[in-house]
Design a protein around this nucleic acid. Structure first.
Lengths: 216, 216
DNA sequence: GTCTATATTGGGATAGAC
DNA sequence: GTCTATCCCAATATAGAC
């Protein structure tokens, strides 16, 4: 019996001696996966999950539909991965906030970031829709894990802002939290853009102002 | 030639001497149509247009699917009719507003009405979704006609409220209008309800307060 | 006008060649 | 791993009996 096959059979965990760097093929595979997720983000941010089709994704990426399924097991997993990546970015952005500024400014900054991401087509608008994806997300551990981190961080800012007297007594913490999430997917954003009268920066500032101060 | 048929032939517009009251059959037909539209409103307010199926509608009404198509030519027409009926109710509610009160109170009242309707399952959440129904609505003249009336009435209140110094100078009229429409379909409503901590009335008041005054 | 049964299309997922 | 060609199910819409 040849030695190689004996080793293979007896110790399947043994790796090759050379430390494996990602091959060209592997890098290309990773790059393609990023390309897919970018396309998915853009489609999700305009049409939402239910109206997104796998044919459409494949066509926009420039690959065949079955190739999609080599990267992601299903449409639900594809969307869940995109959402998880989005939450990763949100967490990065939150950690980058200065600690010295008033907590209310941190909250405004994170909303500003989300609105900008939405306008640039990087913000899936899932929470606003009772989509079939919601259950899949709840069952997707990596997503839930990041969502908990995110709500923890924002929740602390909200409590801090309240201590600093920046939040009205009659508005409960959770309402602030829900409102911030909802504003990130607010159709008002699309409406304002469709008027063609404002720059993206102006739209973001208007939305933040109305969200925190109302009309008055 | 018999007189009756002569009359019939020469003046087809002549109606029978007896004033035709709706027959039992016709009343039943109308009642069924109302039942269908109520079911559609409820489904639209929870799942939205794309996730609503004609099977589901028929099953909940308690009739067979083909019977639906005796009342409405297509799923799009069914939703458009439901939406038009909703706008009719909104217009009625607007006309019922007292003219003496401050315009801002009128705006709050109409939002309160819309939020209550939503909580009771009578408010389709179409504007919040880039749904396939949007194009059909734009092409549905009765809907567009009422939408124009509605935006006209609300637009006048907004201008009046501004004259009365109730709206911040930096917030344009159209942003107020868009925001009111968006709040009527806000997912925050669902979030608050799912906590189970508030009555419907409390939810409505919280939403109105945050919409007009923000968090502060 | 209402039903049972069916035509048809769109889209998620896959078999098998290369 | 990627493609072409296909399966299969769900959902809109309809045919035809009563």
């Amino acid at each position: 019996m040849p030695i190689r096959s004996l080793i293979k059979a007896s110790s399947p965990a043994v790796k090759p001696a050379v430390v494996k760097r990602p091959s060209f093929r592997e890098k290309q595979f990773q790059a393609r996966e990023d390309a897919i997720l970018s396309v998915v983000n853009r489609i999700l941010s305009t049409k939402g999950y239910d109206l997104m089709t796998m044919d459409e994704v494949a066509a926009e990426v420039g690959i065949a539909k079955p190739s999609l399924y080599k990267h992601f097991d299903s449409k639900e997993m594809l969307a869940a991965t995109a959402m998880t990546r989005l939450l990763d970015r949100a967490l990065l952005q939150i950690k980058a906030q200065a600690v010295e500024q008033p907590a209310l400014d941190s909250l405004k900054a994170v909303l500003r970031w989300a609105l900008t991401a939405h306008l640039e087509g990087n913000m899936p608008l899932l929470p606003s829709t009772r989509s079939t994806i919601r259950q899949a997300l709840v069952n997707h551990a990596p997503y839930v894990e990041r969502l908990i981190q995110l709500t923890d961080a924002i929740g602390q800012w909200i409590q801090q802002a309240r201590k600093e007297g920046q939040i009205c007594k009659s508005v409960p913490d959770e309402l602030v939290m829900f409102t911030l999430f909802a504003r990130a997917c607010d159709p008002t954003l699309q409406f304002l853009r469709e008027t063609g009268q404002y720059t993206n920066a102006q739209i973001v500032e208007l939305m933040v102002q109305v969200c925190f101060e109302g009309f008055t």
